[in-house]
Structure formats: C-alpha cells, structure tokens
C-alpha cells in the first residue's frame, strides 16, 4: 500500500510580474521516482524549490504526509542542486565531514565513500573533480543524513555518457532502497528509464501527467520527445543528441 508523501494543491509562484509556477496540482507517492519534465523556463526548478521548502509559494500549498511541512523538514530531505559550489580548497573528504556534522545521525562516511565510489579522488581539491565525480560527491552530500526524500535537479546535465550511466545506476540503487526521488530533467531517455510518474510542464502549468508508458500509449506516439513536441511545438533534448 503506497502512501502520498507530498501533495501539491493550486501551487503558484510569481516574482514581481513573472509567473514561474501557475496552479499546479499533483501527488507524489512514497518510494516513487517522480519526474518533472519540461524545457528551459518551464518552471521545473521553481517547482522543485517549492517542494524542497527552499521557497515559499505565492499561493496554494505543499503538504507532507497530509500536513504542513514540519519544522525538521530539512532533516528529512536531501537536495542535489543543479548548480552549487563548494568551499574552495576543500576535498571530498572535508566536505563529507562538514556536511555529516550538521546532522545528529549521519550515514557512516565509509559507506558513502564506497556507495558513491569517492575513494579514488577522496583527497583531491573538489574544484579539480570531473563532472561525473563532482555529481557523485554532490549526491553523497545530499544523502549524508539518510533522507527519505531526495531531490535531484538535472543531475546528469553536462555529464559524459559513461558518467550519465553511472549516475543512473546510483539513482536506481536509491530507488531500490525505497527512497522517494524527485528529479527534473531535459532528457527523454532518462525520464523513461528512471521515473515511475511524470509531470510535463510548460510555462509553469501542467500539460500532462502519468506514467511514461501510459503517456506515450494514450497519445499514440513513439516516444516522449514526439509527445512533447506535439503538445508544445518545443522539442525536448534526446540523450543521444546531447552525447553527440
């Protein structure tokens, strides 16, 4: 029996006269990998920030297990931001130690180092890591406190094919652990492979919602990219195109 862990009702966020998120309604089940899909400017990152509790909505609500976001919500969620810097001159080891010390009961550093294969660059200046190594470190930092919900904002953007596949494996393992994953992505294959449920956004509004297979089947198209193009006239990015 699945349980709704996060529910969004009439969610709206505007900045001055720009409406970034415009009346979203959806639910996220516990243990699910939930994908927010859309082109640049669709409102994915803003929606994610509202779900993370990093931003407050202009109107509407985000509820956690049927109630308001609890005071210790940040202890329950792990966030991998799309673009985040770390302190200069610190190594992955220093960063793991720093972020672990923010929490009462962190996962052992040895386990994280093994799980995210950080050993080979554990004592290297974090500024000198490759894109894939850096993303693995950021994911490890998001998970130091063993959160039940993990937010991943375009986790594979800018990665080479090998690193992208590596990260998919990590995300698949996290799903197998029973964590709830919420990710944004530009990439169709990524969404099809990883996500159980998708919301396709455009201009801050929901265009379609459902499982990847259901969406493709209902629309009578061959893939999500064709579906998205038919809905908005804007193509999403195919993984192979990015690789090439």
């Amino acid at each position: 029996m699945t349980e709704t862990i996060l529910a969004v009702r009439g969610l709206r966020k505007s900045y001055d006269d720009v409406v970034a998120v415009d009346g979203l309604d959806f639910e996220i089940e516990s243990g699910q990998c939930f994908g927010l899909l859309g082109p640049n400017g669709a409102g994915k990152s803003t929606t994610l920030a509202l779900l993370e509790g990093m931003e407050l909505p202009t109107s509407g609500s985000v509820t956690y297990r049927g109630g308001a976001l609890p005071a210790d919500y940040q202890d329950r969620v792990g966030i991998q931001f799309q673009a985040t810097a770390l302190q200069d001159y610190l190594t992955p080891f220093d960063n793991l130690k720093l972020f672990s010390s923010f929490y009462d009961d962190p996962i052992s550093m040895d386990r994280l180092i093994e799980q995210f294969r950080l050993g080979e660059f554990l004592h290297r200046d974090a500024r000198r890591l490759s894109g894939g190594q850096r993303q693995r470190l950021l994911l490890a930092l998001a998970l130091v406190h063993n959160p039940e919900i993990v937010f991943l904002d375009e986790p594979t953007t800018g990665l080479d094919p090998r690193s992208r596949r590596d990260l998919w494996d990590v995300v698949t393992d996290l799903k197998a652990d029973g964590r709830t994953l919420i990710l944004t992505t530009h990439y169709m294959e990524e969404a099809e492979v990883l996500c159980d449920q998708l919301v396709i956004l455009s201009h801050g509004q929901t265009l379609l919602q459902g499982t990847p297979k259901q969406l493709i089947k209902d629309a009578g198209v061959v893939d999500l990219d064709t579906l998205f193009l038919s809905l908005t006239g804007e193509p999403l990015v195919k993984t192979q195109e990015v690789i090439e």
Partner: peptide, 16 residues
C-alpha cells in the same frame, strides 16, 4: 562569493 556561487543556498538546505 559563497552567495554568488550558490554555496549558501546549499547550506540553507541543512539544519545549519
């Protein structure tokens, strides 16, 4: 510099 690079935003997402 921390704010501009997004590091403070990362720290905000912790109990600090």
């Amino acid at each position: 510099r921390y704010r501009q690079s997004g590091y403070l935003r990362r720290l905000k997402a912790t109990p600090l």
